[in-house]
Write a protein that binds this DNA or RNA. Structure first.
Lengths: 242, 242
DNA sequence: TATTGACGGATTGTTCAACAATCGGTCATC
DNA sequence: GATGACCGATTGTTGAACAATCCGTCAATA
């Protein structure tokens, strides 16, 4: 291991050090509360109450609110305060519109980059990119087998994050991360989220196999079909809840 | 004009009222400074100096900094301050990777929505969606004819924003808006930005004509070719500057 | 000479208290 | 029943203060 390897490893851990910001940690706490569903959509977050409860000043708390506002988990209404985002059916549709573009686009771009004519299965960069996808699929199947339903949902998120990472673009990764966080707000309206997520496990594996076999066009249309089905199911559930 | 029309028009102007926030206006001022290039990348923005110059408190200024940080125009280094973002060649490449996915994806999705088999030219929703694209093309040609080179660049932005709007997705629109704002940081390193932008006017018109004729697949590949060419040109210029 | 360690000014991170502006609801008025 | 005036509560913004951190300088040491 050379010196530059050491330095590179250290650089990778720098992000953990930078997390020292108080506002960032406050945002972390609130983010988990929101995505886990213990803060219902529409709830108003009082600056004073939360500030005293967490022991931070109003200014710092407002900074945390801004962070979550940019992730679309909170909405900020001028002179009225911040609220946990309440998604409409139109939001759900739009979220899936963006998913179609990002996820299918990621597969398509991977196809253009790795297999201009031939199959990418022999490219080791490709197989390396595929490892996280495979991990996510296995993670989901293992969780389902042991009845850890919450983890099935998490694994599903990891799967789609890994697929979008096929584009090899940090900005696509980040956009996908925000999108999935926003989607967690939607999943809580499902009456039976466990069944919802479990139903897509075979589809995920199939997409993985298509990717591994180098059939990127097939993977893209399988993903499109998955997104159409999931959107329809969510929109229907949303109509009932409203 | 019915009552609901009135209300709808008023609602469209609501965003202008919401801009009453001091931090938002400060962010506006700084944003124009940055995108117009009078604040060079890498410049450090002192809280005290700018705060006193603009007559706002440090807390409010920091809130404005956060806004611009989320738009990636500023980078915030802990305990060191905020700096005008300095983009690397890797950033430029990534920006174009995302553009490929968003812009080509928008055209592709428009194709899937409007012409499942047949041409969309008879659909009036389609022609309505195309109007902003046409306006942007004409705006650019007019500006070039009168030598208003800055406006040529602006028109080019409008063109690509309008194309991405073909997806009909607010979130795609917003992502594209942020992306283009970030790209303005890049254009300033070009020695002759006027020639750079002007060269793509015929290409823009050609894409418009393909779209208007209903040849969405042709438009998509023309857009991909445009993006490849622009990226190569920018990366080359970036290599020289560095 | 090159590296290390200590010092000090400058800047940012965070908190606090205060006041102005605005919102939401209540009540009286017409 | 609609309008307008009032009032408590909350947010928007400010200014000041102190702690923590960074950066450059300079002396000490090998």
């Amino acid at each position: 291991m050379t010196t530059s390897d050491w330095l590179q490893e250290l650089q990778a851990e720098r992000s953990r050090l930078g997390r020292a910001s108080t506002a960032g940690r406050v945002a972390d706490v609130l983010r988990t509360r929101i995505t886990e569903g213990s803060l219902a959509p529409g709830t108003r977050l009082s600056e004073e109450d939360i500030g005293t409860a967490l022991g931070v000043s109003r200014n710092t708390l407002r900074e945390a609110f801004r962070l979550l506002g940019h992730e679309r988990l909170l909405v900020h209404e001028f002179n009225r305060g911040v609220f946990v985002r309440r998604l409409t059916v139109a939001d759900v549709r739009d979220l899936y519109e963006l998913r179609r573009i990002l996820e299918c686009g990621a597969v398509r771009r991977a196809a253009e980059r790795f297999s201009p004519g031939s199959s990418p299965v022999s490219d080791e960069r490709w197989t390396g990119l595929l490892d996280p996808v495979r991990s996510a699929v296995e993670e989901g199947e293992a969780a389902a087998g042991e009845g850890r339903w919450v983890d099935v949902g998490t694994a599903n998120m990891h799967f789609h994050q890994a697929v979008s990472a096929l584009a090899g673009s940090p900005r696509v990764d980040e956009a996908m991360g925000h999108l999935l966080a926003e989607l967690r707000l939607v999943f809580h309206v499902m009456a039976a989220p466990q069944a919802f997520h479990e139903a897509y496990l075979p589809g995920n594996r199939r997409i993985l196999e298509l990717l591994a076999a180098g059939d990127l066009a097939g993977a893209e249309s399988a993903m499109a079909a998955y997104l159409d089905a999931a959107e329809a199911q969510l929109v229907a559930a949303y109509g009932e809840a409203a």
